[in-house]
Amino acid sequence: MKSFDDLDTLVGAVPFAIVNDLRTIDTGRGSEALYRDKLPALLTSLADRARVASIEASSAIEGVVVEDRARAADIVAGKADQLRDRSEQELAGYRAALDYLYQEQWRPLNVGLILHLHRLLFQYTPVPGGQLKQVENLVVDKMPDGTKVKRFTPVAAAQTPSYLDELIRRYLAAQAAGRHHPVILTGLFVLDLLTIHPFVDGNGRITRALTNALLHDAGYDVTRYVSLETAIARSADAYYAALLASTGRWHDGQHDPWPWLRYFVGLVAGTYQDFATLTSRARSGGSKQDRVREYVLDHAPSTFQIGDVRAALPGVSDQTIRIALGLLKAEGRIEPDSLGRGATWSKRP
């Protein structure tokens, strides 16, 4: 909300580095329709992989991890009959929230939608979801020695409903006016929603899920094919540092949104660069072993299975994948964690 107080002044002089990233984003956006026409099978595969990666990465950022990868895959696919613990419950909840936003009928953006997403996130847990905070909360960092340091103070519980309403109203008005870049406006919405911190728990996950939906709504579909949440997880220190730098004096309307916007716009530009790499490989053909190598080293999660590679690279046989993995193992780039059909591999630093 506060980031929209004097929008014309704020974005009247966008830093050069951000301008360059916006150009990368808009160039990538212009190519999306071409890829949908020319490489539909690849995009379907990328979308399936990105969905799984997003669910797992956004949950992991909050410490929600299911160590058994086969079990996690069943939960993400909705095949788990019973959810055994809180991590499994919350992983399934994020899957439900993200999948709801992948449907076109999620619109319009309003407080009711945000409450519904929160309800979905916690629907499998004993915690009642879909309620704005009723008590004051703080956002803290846990230091290595176990002490906690306050990062910022969110909006008071009594003010949260009105602030949330106002943020949505201003964001929608700014997007409709069309005077400023949609990705900049989305970044400002994300910053303000995280600062309002409307829930006792789940704020980060709800905001990250909404980020995907708002980018899609503005015509930037790349996060359907490249997981934004994975990129955030890989740059978690920069993510939190940018938020910290941009939330100071937010309550007075004297904060500096540019540290956060530099991070956020760069993040979206990076997903378009990854998307370009994945699609260019498919267009040029190239060595199938080279494609496996590039995927494993540059795009696969730190721990992966052959099934992940197969999903990302349709048309590449399991035999080719195994040969490429064997070569990478011989180079000391990866190592097997287990044997058999469900074997996992880990990338070595």
Rank of each mutant, 00 (worst) to 15 (best):
residue 332 G to D: 03
residue 308 D to T: 12
residue 305 Q to L: 06
residue 336 P to K: 09
residue 313 L to F: 10
residue 337 D to I: 13
residue 332 G to M: 08
residue 300 A to R: 01
residue 276 A to M: 07
residue 323 I to S: 04
residue 286 G to M: 08
residue 295 Y to K: 00
residue 267 L to D: 02
residue 300 A to L: 09
residue 309 V to S: 11
residue 313 L to C: 05
residue 327 L to H: 14
residue 278 L to V: 06
residue 307 G to M: 01
residue 279 T to G: 05
residue 333 R to A: 15
residue 326 G to Q: 00
residue 313 L to N: 07
residue 323 I to C: 00
residue 284 S to Y: 02
residue 280 S to W: 01
residue 332 G to C: 11
residue 275 F to N: 03
residue 271 T to L: 15
residue 287 S to Y: 04
residue 324 A to L: 04
residue 328 L to T: 07
residue 325 L to R: 07
residue 326 G to C: 01
residue 267 L to T: 03
residue 282 A to F: 05
residue 288 K to Y: 03
residue 304 F to C: 01
residue 288 K to T: 04
residue 334 I to S: 09
residue 344 T to V: 12
residue 342 G to P: 00
residue 324 A to G: 06
residue 343 A to Q: 14
residue 300 A to Q: 02
residue 273 Q to K: 14
residue 314 P to H: 05
residue 278 L to S: 05
residue 298 D to H: 13
residue 331 E to F: 01
residue 340 G to Q: 08
residue 337 D to T: 10
residue 334 I to W: 03
residue 309 V to C: 05
residue 269 A to N: 08
residue 304 F to S: 03
residue 329 K to N: 10
residue 303 T to N: 09
residue 327 L to I: 09
residue 309 V to Q: 07
residue 267 L to C: 08
residue 311 A to K: 13
residue 282 A to L: 00
residue 272 Y to A: 09
residue 312 A to G: 04
residue 317 S to L: 06
residue 298 D to A: 14
residue 293 R to C: 03
residue 311 A to S: 11
residue 304 F to M: 00
residue 280 S to M: 08
residue 294 E to F: 05
residue 267 L to I: 03
residue 328 L to C: 04
residue 277 T to R: 11
residue 302 S to K: 11
residue 326 G to L: 01
residue 317 S to T: 15
